[in-house]
């Protein structure tokens, strides 16, 4: 690991000020950043430790919903009674990620900013446009079983590895960020970018901006939600495909629905097209399949990962089927 300067921020203003130094990065739980620094992929000259900032609370704003401080640990958020009751998909997504130890360290803000697990991104000897813009992409002709099938470009086919963010995408979450220019709010759908020609630009954060909170709107349908993660190991593995879904069925028809996919794109993939097909229509297996087909029509596979398209289709259908069945028995 390259040497760096360590600064511990006392408040948000100080953190933002320190982050203005060239080459500075925020240090939260460190579970991804420290690993990448050891691999010489991240090379910050200054680390601004934000873990002692007062951003570790989950609160209920007067207008409803939930406000989650950026430094709330993944494990604490997953166990929070309000999350479990109102947004079970989020609790499930968090608990399906990483290991208990890592969830005890990792923060909500850091989880959003996780970087891809692409094997070629991690290997300094390989070409990777994300790590070294313009160097090429060795994943396209290489091992790409874990890679994206939606929103890819010729520059990059990496996926975003977060589970939590997939649930947040389904829940219409909003990210609050603070920088030298003040505080602003970004909808989760706009927070991560697709690679296009600039895969090294992964979010719409401006330099030096700090994620301070994530806000969840009041969303009754979220009480009936599920996260389904499909992976090679039974635990402690990244998703091949995951589905975050919330479904409300009224008289056999879809009254409300939220759907997002993980493991398929460089960002948590909100399935707007599928939601459009589903809303107001019958809550049947056939309708679920049509919705999944509509969402995945634009998907393109590579030799190793074409299976993900079919897997995503099946997982969407299975998750919705289960939610519909639970609605029927409730």
């Amino acid at each position: 690991m390259r040497p760096f300067t360590y600064v511990r921020a006392g408040d948000v203003a100080e953190a933002v000020r320190e982050a203005a130094r060239p080459g500075a990065k925020f240090l939260g739980g460190g579970t991804n950043l420290v690993d990448l620094m050891r691999e010489d992929i991240e090379r910050p000259s200054t680390l601004v430790d934000i873990t002692r900032l007062p951003l570790a609370e989950v609160t209920e704003p007067p207008g409803g919903g939930l406000r989650i401080g950026a430094l709330v640990r993944n494990s604490h958020l997953a166990a929070h009674p309000l999350v479990r009751a109102r947004y079970p998909v989020l609790s499930q997504a968090l608990l399906s990620g990483a290991s208990a130890q890592l969830r005890n360290m990792a923060t909500v803000g850091g989880n959003l900013l996780q970087r891809t697990r692409c094997l070629y991104f991690y290997d300094g000897a390989a070409a990777c446009n994300k790590r070294e813009p313009g160097s090429g992409c060795d994943a396209i002709g290489g091992f790409n079983r874990y890679h994206a099938v939606l929103g890819t470009s010729e520059s990059c086919i990496a996926t975003h590895p977060s589970d939590m963010a997939v649930a947040l995408a389904a829940l219409d979450a909003v990210v609050e960020v603070t920088g030298e220019g003040g505080t602003r709010r970004i909808s989760l759908g706009d927070f991560h970018r697709l690679p296009e020609g600039t895969p090294h630009l992964e979010t719409t954060l401006r330099p030096g901006e700090l994620v301070t909170a994530v806000e969840l709107p009041e969303l009754p349908v979220a009480a009936r939600s599920r996260y389904r993660k499909v992976r090679d190991r039974a635990s402690y593995a990244f998703a091949l495909v995951s589905v975050a879904a919330a479904l409300e069925v009224r008289d056999g028809a879809v009254g409300a629905v939220r759907l997002a996919l993980g493991g398929v794109a460089a960002k948590p993939w909100r399935a707007h097209e599928a939601e459009r097909v589903l809303l107001g229509g019958p809550a049947t297996e056939e309708a679920f399949r049509q919705a999944a087909d509509a969402e995945l029509a634009a998907a393109t596979g590579r030799p190793d990962n074409t299976f993900k398209i079919e897997l995503a289709r099946r997982t969407v259908v299975a998750t919705l089927r289960q939610l519909a069945a639970e609605a029927g028995t409730a």
Binding site: T31, D49, S75
Partner: peptide, 21 residues
């Protein structure tokens, strides 16, 4: 997980924890 220790009673992986933190 071989490096697991308890920090204020919570389990963490000490390999990804910077001591200064």
């Amino acid at each position: 997980g071989a490096c697991t220790v308890l920090a204020d009673g919570e389990r963490i992986v000490s390999c990804l924890a910077l001591a200064v933190q």
